[in-house]
Amino acid sequence: MIALEKLSKIFPTSNGDITAVDNIDLTIDEGEIFGVIGYSGAGKSTLIRLLNMLEKPTSGKIIIAEKNMADLQGSSLRKARQEISMIFQHFNLLWSRTVRENIAFPLEIAKLSKKDKNARVDELIDLVGLTGREDAYPAQLSGGQKQRVGIARALANNPKVLLCDEATSALDPKTTDSILELLTDINKKLGLTIVLITHEMHVIRKICNRVAVMENGKIVEEGPVLDVFRQPREEMTKEFVKQITEPEETMEAIRELMKTGDTSPIVKISFLGEDAEQPIMTNLILTCGVSVNILQGKVSKTRDGSYGTLFVQLQGNQEQLNHALSYLKDQQVQTEVMTAHE
């Protein structure tokens, strides 16, 4: 569906050239939700703007639905762009227009008949859950409702690709989850290919099939989300995964516990897939005779399975502790004995 081949974007400045996107090769399958994650300055916003030619590449190919976007001009480019819509962090709504009028705007440009336009707007209002708010103005809407308007407007012309530029960054966590659920529902109902950029691993974890990690204009790691959670290779990826698996308040509590002089080992246990649903701790206690002090635990759901992390303090004699660590290894769960510098 989308193929990037040796794609680069260089911005010339008075202080020298800045390479925002650096020789990227990437394939995104039709109908998947693909995430691109990176910190500010990584190049992810430039990358997504290259996909619909809001930025022109310095070199390389952008192939979408078998067309090289970089070769298109004029009416051919405008026609290809109609199949690629975008939603933004700050909504970009027309503040003097109602919900209905905002959603209708691209249909007016496409010169749809009044009957067809009204029917399509009604359909989209229902799809994004804004029934009853048709005549409200943006200033009268919550942040989540504004983004729903933005999504409906982006879907007006039946695009094949939806680009999401930090679409949930301005929203609170609960509203973020509701928008992510809406995007997932749209992906299933319409078979839409969604490319989503973010700096939040929670967003990637919740709805993406695959993820690419960007740093300094390059993709440093890419793969299925569950695989990336299980075995992140690059330091940048490990930082993002820790947003979910090692919340700072948990790590601070562990560091404080270690300062007390208690030498009982603290172990981080990572579960994957069906193992995340199994009573491994109960079996550990019964089999090895150790006492287990659970410090923190969480099972995270991804699109393709569960990934769980559990921080526990094991208490017992040395033989029991060795038996416990050996038992966990035999269960094919990842274990890491925490140290004071963690």
Rank of each mutant, 00 (worst) to 15 (best):
N102V: 07
A70D: 11
D275S: 12
D71Y: 12
K6H: 15
L163K: 05
R210P: 00
V213A: 03
L141K: 10
P279T: 12
L130W: 13
V241W: 00
G31T: 02
E248R: 12
D304S: 14
N209I: 00
A139G: 15
V225L: 04
A3T: 13
L93F: 05
K115I: 11
K67V: 05
L47I: 05
N187P: 07
V203Q: 00
I2T: 04
E123V: 05
V241F: 01
W95D: 13
R153P: 04
A42L: 00
F311P: 05
G74H: 03
G31A: 03
T335W: 07
Y307I: 14
I197M: 02
Q243I: 06
I269R: 08
K268D: 03
I269T: 09
A65L: 09
N52Q: 10
M281R: 13
E83M: 09
K188L: 09
G289S: 09
G305Q: 04
Q73P: 01
S76L: 13
Q89C: 02
I109G: 06
F34M: 00
Q315T: 09
I109H: 09
T263P: 12
V228Y: 04
Q145N: 09
N293F: 11
L295M: 15
F105E: 12
V36Y: 00
E249M: 12
G144S: 08
C208D: 01
M258L: 14
M53T: 10
V21N: 03
S270H: 10
E319L: 13
L51R: 08
V333M: 10
V312A: 14
T13G: 13
A156C: 07
A136S: 13
I2P: 03
E234V: 03
L286Y: 11
V121G: 08
E30W: 02
R78V: 11
L192I: 08
N317A: 06
N52T: 07
N102Y: 05
M251A: 08
I2Q: 03
L26E: 04
D22H: 10
V312Y: 08
F34H: 00
N209P: 01
R100Y: 11
K79D: 09
W95H: 12
V228Q: 04
T287S: 11
P279E: 09
F11D: 02
K189I: 01
S40V: 00
P173Q: 10
E239H: 06
E277V: 12
I10T: 15
L171N: 09
Q320T: 08
D262G: 08
A276W: 00
Y39M: 04
D29N: 14
S76F: 11
S76N: 14
D126G: 14
V337Q: 15
